[in-house]
Design a protein around this nucleic acid. Structure first.
Lengths: 193, 193
DNA sequence: GAAACTCGTTAAACTGGTTTAATAAATAGA
DNA sequence: TCTATTTATTAAACCAGTTTAACGAGTTTC
């Protein structure tokens, strides 16, 4: 069996969906196993799937002038994809890379859209999950514009302590918008105070 | 007559909606006129409406320790609200203030939700407009974490040149995450080069 | 038309980051 | 187990911003 229980609950968290309808859709998801450092998406590729991360950790980043710029870390129980590529069916310019061995469920774009067409309930799930994602992202924008690096580092430490175990420090620095050197100095300053 | 043509086209931009169904919903929108410096939302207030900006310019900001932190400028032809307050029906901690005299259409939350219930098409419009808002916000996050202040200033100048006419400089500085002094220095540096 | 604000620029001193480079420590590969 | 690679820290020089304060040019207000 496919162990879709978490994915199912994730959908039901947003809105009621007929068990039978939902079941019929979820079996269409493919299971993808990723080893550490495997890529789910590379630049140039057209992303035609929406993903759900069952287990593991995925780093969403782009590379510019040889430098890695981390946009997000995805961990257990989230939906994700490279949305610009997915929506417009254009070549991605990002990476989705497993930082540790991971388990992902994937649904093809046509299949997902067919679900939205066939079920008002699933369409609603789509709207509400997108709305929640938007709100989370907005509070991130808020933090980025209002808070200092130090505040944001401390908040990350508090809200996602696991990341510091699973993810190398220089990627966290990039995610916080600074260099590894800068982060190192920041940590030192904090440890003294 | 209520001049709902722009709002109507905005909805239709996202997805097909039966003209009749849409018409029936749009007449439920109230029209709100705002003078320069009028508030649409103040902290403490529970936001129970979703807005469409027909004309004018609205500044979305919060105040902390007496300092204004600009989160967004809304200009003609966008949907907006204070989402955290709207979604969770909790007191807002933001302002929505007209920077110039503005014209807004507003729909009550109950009415909007009723529309989503009654029409799969409108639910889809809700999903797709939210998806687009998410993507735009994501590219802003991208810029905030990857680009320098200078790059972001130049981009704003290019993408939203009107803002520099309508909005005082110190609000733009805040939006860009810097002080008026810092922005002034940046401009001077650029004008020399 | 004077007084009171608002807004933008400048200067000076400071600070939290950057870059580059060297070194140390930890991890992975054969 | 030894080597090679990756990751984290430190130092030094630098720089783009900050804070505070002062000043001048517009605007409002009455």
């Amino acid at each position: 069996m496919n162990d879709l229980i978490n994915l199912k609950n994730k959908v039901l968290f947003y809105t009621d969906v007929d068990e039978e309808i939902l079941g019929r859709e979820l079996v269409k998801y493919e299971r993808i196993s990723l080893g550490k450092a495997d890529f789910l998406v590379r630049p140039g590729q057209i992303v035609d799937r929406f993903y759900y991360l069952e287990k593991g950790c995925i780093c969403y980043y782009k590379e510019e002038e040889g430098e890695i710029k981390v946009l997000e870390f995805y961990t257990e129980d989230v939906f994700f994809t490279d949305l610009p590529s997915y929506v417009n069916q254009q070549p991605s310019n990002c990476y989705l890379k497993a930082i540790e061995s991971s388990m992902v469920f994937a649904v093809k774009k046509e299949v997902a859209e067919e679900s939205f067409n066939n079920s008002h309930q699933l369409e609603r799930f789509g709207r509400l999950s997108m709305q929640e994602a938007f709100m989370k992202l907005f509070s991130r924008v808020e933090r980025m514009s209002i808070r200092s690096n130090e505040e944001r580092y401390l908040r990350l430490l508090e809200k996602r302590p696991d990341l510091f175990q699973r993810v190398p420090n220089y990627l966290i620095a990039s995610y916080l918008g600074m260099t590894p050197v800068g982060l190192s100095k920041l940590r030192k300053r904090l440890s003294k105070a």
